[in-house]
């Protein structure tokens, strides 16, 4: 178990399988970032398990030279729970989509987060059902035109991070498929965090929902519309010319223009502050920038550790004597002719 860590390179983490996403799909970039990060994380491939549901995104495990389980639609959190409880030494990653993780599998996602199983969740949010050819999803914005909503969707979307926070997640981060510099750090943080690490990745579906995130992912738009949250640093964007300020009286945030680099009014990011996380997640995009990075990180006891602990505490000192167990309860013995209670 304590053998010196084997050095791996990104290529060691790629399978020989042909990657089957549409050319230009954001999933490629995520795969590349993950394969690049795994050697730095240092867990050997054989101790790593990728569990996914169903969707374009959920094909991911087939491309990772690790143990992998491509399960059924929405159920990856449940399968991963069994894997992790059966062998807590494994490094378990869950790959899911906005439909897989928040529609059919929303219930499992909720319970995974509240239990705080020590796994990483990468939710590829493309605001669409890619695999089934482009129907709107629970994260699609009102008015999304799709084969199933030809006149535009009318139901209000869910915010994955807000859902996660409400479910009791202890680690929430957000990144963009093309963020090849930022994503590895986020993945490393997610891995290092003990408990369920929830990472929402904005992923472009070039075929069915192209450019939905352009307002903040487009190269030109990015500086003015992305807010990179760094613990202990002021919440600045637009090249340091704008910041987020908190008004205690109304308990609201506002965007402030900074004059001559004066940052005193700007909030300093505290990733352990749940209220700040809530504000960063809930501020509406448009008037506000899109908060990215590690938004919330506040470790709490994990489910797997608690299960292992209780199993061992309760079992301690009790011999596993099956013959004795079978003989418990209301019992008696019949010796050839007579009987007596025992």
């Amino acid at each position: 178990m304590n053998a010196p860590a084997r050095i791996t390179v990104p290529a060691d983490w790629a399978t020989d399988q042909e990657v089957r996403w549409c050319p230009g799909c954001g999933d490629y970039a995520i795969l590349k970032a993950v394969q690049r990060t795994m050697p730095e994380i240092g867990t050997p491939p054989e101790k790593t398990v990728f569990v996914s549901g169903i969707g374009c995104s959920s094909r991911f495990p087939y491309y990772m030279e690790t143990y992998g389980f491509h399960t059924i639609h929405g159920r990856a959190p449940a399968v991963a729970t069994g894997v992790k409880l059966a062998n807590p030494e494994l490094d378990v990653w869950i790959i899911t989509g906005d439909g897989d993780g928040l529609s059919i599998g929303g219930n499992h996602m909720f319970h995974l987060l509240r239990r705080n199983l020590d796994v990483q969740v990468l939710l590829f949010n493309n605001e669409i059902y890619g695999l089934t050819k482009g129907q709107y999803s629970p994260t699609s914005r009102v008015g999304t035109r799709s084969p199933s909503t030809p006149f535009g969707s009318v139901d209000r979307p869910a915010s994955p991070c807000s859902f996660a926070l409400g479910a009791g997640a202890r680690f929430i981060a957000r990144t963009v498929d093309t963020a090849q510099k930022a994503m590895p750090d986020i993945l490393k943080r997610a891995h290092a965090h003990k408990g369920t690490s929830f990472v929402e990745i904005f992923q472009n579906c070039i075929v069915y929902n192209d450019a939905v995130f352009d307002a903040f992912t487009d190269k030109k738009a990015a500086p003015d519309h992305q807010l990179h949250c760094v613990h202990g640093q002021p919440l600045l964007f637009a090249g340091g010319t704008k910041g987020l300020a908190f008004d205690a009286a109304t308990m609201t945030v506002s965007v402030v223009d900074l004059v001559e680099g004066e940052t005193a009014v700007v909030m300093v990011h505290d990733e352990t502050n749940r209220i700040m996380a809530q504000l960063l997640i809930d501020m509406p995009f448009g008037p506000f920038p899109m908060a990215l990075g590690v938004i919330w990180c506040s470790p709490a006891p994990t489910f797997d550790a608690a299960v292992v602990e209780q199993n061992s505490v309760v079992a301690a000192g009790k011999p596993a004597d099956l013959d004795a167990l079978l003989r418990k309860g209301q019992s008696w013995e019949i010796a050839s002719k007579d009987f007596h209670a025992v």
Binding site: V49, V51, F69, T71, I72, R75, P77, A78, V79, A80, T81, G82, V83, K84, L85, A86, N87, L90, N107, H108, F110, H111
Partner: peptide
């Protein structure tokens, strides 16, 4: 588990492991 689907899926995950 949270429902019967999660119950069987977790058991499948455990068997896999």
């Amino acid at each position: 588990a949270e429902d019967e689907i999660a119950a069987i899926c977790s058991a499948i995950g455990a068997s896999y492991a």
